[in-house]
Design a protein around this nucleic acid. Structure first.
Lengths: 172, 172
DNA sequence: ATCCCTGCAAAGGGTTTGCAGACGC
DNA sequence: GCGTCTGCAAACCCTTTGCAGGGAT
């Protein structure tokens, strides 16, 4: 019986945490919009919420479709517009993984990381390496640059038995 | 007088070296085409030569235009096709510098390096850091990946007095 | 009431594709 | 001569833009 209670407590805590984060990013966006005298439209908050309820990486079309599927009417133009704003206020990160279309990911409250992409199955993994910071610092002072952000992508083949399957396309 | 001769010798050596490299990359392409039973068309060699006579980075349109300007008739389709082949045989490297269009650079006989881009003037600088190799090795063994290549781009602002000038667009 | 933001659809820009003719093999 | 490669232009895909109506302030 105690076990069940513990499980339920854990679930509640998880839900709270999730909703905490949703509240937190909402407030960050709110503050950003105010500071720039931009309007707090429902679309902007709905898109933010959708992004923070998703896992991992997504592209514009995936985000657009998943909102459509929830019967939330947004236009692609608004999705693009809102993503620009979210990238500006650091709530979302934009990536160019070597394909034509940009991919995005939520970035508030997640630790900074880089990406590893399988050229066969297009799976995207993440990793961290503090050495990169040293590289950045060195290059910044050597070449007199003020470095704002970076993109490091490693390309290769994973040793996943389910890989090789080029049937999986554009998934992560 | 001796000075002049020295200068001329140096120029000749330089020319020889340059032509050596042209010959060398030509032979690499030749071998690659043979190995894949692809045809040795004049367009392919002309594009290779143009690339190795250029400095730094370029995009498809720049390459296409510079060949046009030399009265060499090629189509964009052939430029794209040939670039794919040159990337496959490692004579050329393809980059996605965060913009829509791909940029390329010759890669045979040049040491491996990464890039630093000024967000204001779009200048592209290069740097090397052996630490990256360590990162790659670590990630490869940790995540069981066979890493084939990577892309590291640092974005920031240069402290060039000529920067800020957003008049310069897409230049390096 | 203002005028920014949205939705829609058309335009834009880079890349890919289809096809007929050319040419390497 | 066969089959691939080229040149041209149209198609494609993602993204941006223009415009009229709607809603935040």
């Amino acid at each position: 019986m105690q076990v069940i209670i513990n499980v339920i407590d854990a679930m509640i805590e998880k839900l709270d945490k999730k909703s905490d984060r949703q509240t937190e990013v909402r407030q960050i966006l709110m503050a950003y919009l105010e500071s720039r005298a931009l309007r707090k439209t429902p679309e902007r908050f709905a898109i933010l919420e959708e992004i923070y309820s998703r896992k991992d990486h997504f592209d514009v079309e995936e985000l657009y479709i998943s909102m459509k599927n929830k019967n939330y009417r947004v236009s692609r133009a608004t999705v693009y517009n809102t993503l620009d704003i979210l990238v500006e206020c650091d709530l979302v990160t934009k990536h160019q993984f070597g394909t034509q279309q940009a991919r995005y990911e939520k970035s508030f409250g997640f630790k900074q990381h880089d990406h590893l992409i399988c050229l066969e199955c297009h799976k995207v993994l993440e990793f961290c390496d503090p050495r990169l910071q040293q590289t950045q610092d060195m290059v910044a002072s050597l070449l007199k640059f003020n470095i704002l952000h970076h993109s490091l992508i490693l390309y290769g083949n994973c040793q996943d038995e389910h890989c090789e399957g080029k049937t999986l396309v554009g998934k992560e």
